[in-house]
Write a protein that binds this DNA or RNA. Structure first.
Lengths: 126, 126
DNA sequence: TGCATAGTTGCACAATGGCGCAACAAAGAT
DNA sequence: ATCTTTGTTGCGCCATTGTGCAACTATGCA
C-alpha cells in the first residue's frame, strides 16, 4: 500500500513529474546534466529529485564514466503501465517545451552519448 | 501543470487513496459516515481528506438532508480516465478489505440511502 | 600529481501536511 | 424550544519536504 502512495508522492512535485514525463515519452535514458539543462534547475536539485524517484522504484540508474544515466524501471504490473500511459497524456504546455529542449540535447549527443555536460552556465555547481 | 501535481498530491496519502479507490471501483456515491466506518478514521479526519480530494477536482459533493454524499467527478480527458483505471488495478490487501466493508454498509442502506449513520462508536465526534 | 568536470550529500531554514481536540453549523426529531 | 445526529472548521503540535549553500566523492585528463 505504501508502495503506491510513494509512487503518487514521487509524482506530486512538478520537477519530478517533468522528469518522469521526459522518460516516459522519450523511452530513453537521460543523464543528470541533460535534465539540468532541460529543467533549468541546479544539478544538486536534479540529483535529489532523481534519488526520490529511484527510491520510489520508478527509475533506474546506470553509471558510465563520469556520467550517470537514468531510465524508467521495467514495468511490472498493470498499475504502472496505466500510470505511465496517463502521464503521457498530460496536456501541459510546460511538458511540450521540455520535449523541445530534450530534442536539443539529443542533437548534441555524440554517438548517442551525452558528452558535453551542462550548457547553461548558471546551473552548474561552483 | 499544478492541476496534475495536485491530483498526485491528493493521492499520495493512504486514506485518500482508499477513498478514491472505493469511489472508482463502486461507481457510487458514498456518504461521510460510510467512509468513517470503512476507513476506521474519525469523521473530522474523513471530512478533511474529502475536502482535499474535492479541491483537487477529483470528487463532487451532494447534500441530502443531514447526509453528504461524495462521488467521482465526471471524467473529462484521457489523463483522468487512465489514472482511475490505474487505481482500480492496485493489488493491495487493504483495498480488498475496504470493499468488503463497503458491501456491509451497502447492505444496511435503506432504499439505496445511507440512513443509519456511524456504526462504530469510537469513531464518532463527542 | 594536480586540475577540471559530473554528480552526491549534509546542514539549516522556511513551508507544508496530517492529526487530535474542541467548537461550530445545519438539519431533523421529540 | 431543545436535543440529537451528521458533518465542518480552526487551532496547536509534530513530522516531512523542497531549497540553497557548501563540502564532498569520483572519474578522466594534462
Amino acid at each position: 500500500m505504501n508502495t503506491y502512495t510513494d509512487f503518487f508522492k514521487a509524482l506530486s512535485d512538478e520537477t519530478r513529474l517533468r522528469i518522469l514525463h521526459l522518460l516516459v515519452v522519450s523511452k530513453s535514458e537521460l543523464c543528470v546534466c541533460e535534465f539540468t539543462d532541460i529543467l533549468e534547475t541546479p544539478t544538486y536539485n536534479v540529483s535529489k529529485h532523481l534519488k526520490i524517484l529511484k527510491n520510489a522504484g520508478l527509475i533506474n540508474e546506470r553509471k558510465e564514466g563520469r556520467w550517470v544515466y537514468f531510465g524508467l524501471t521495467p514495468v511490472k504490473g498493470r498499475f504502472l503501465e496505466l500510470l505511465f500511459e496517463a502521464i503521457k497524456e498530460i496536456p501541459a504546455q510546460q511538458l511540450k517545451t521540455d520535449l523541445n529542449e530534450l530534442q536539443k540535447r539529443f542533437d548534441i549527443r555524440i554517438e548517442g552519448k551525452c558528452l558535453l555536460g551542462i550548457q547553461k552556465e548558471h546551473l552548474k555547481n561552483h
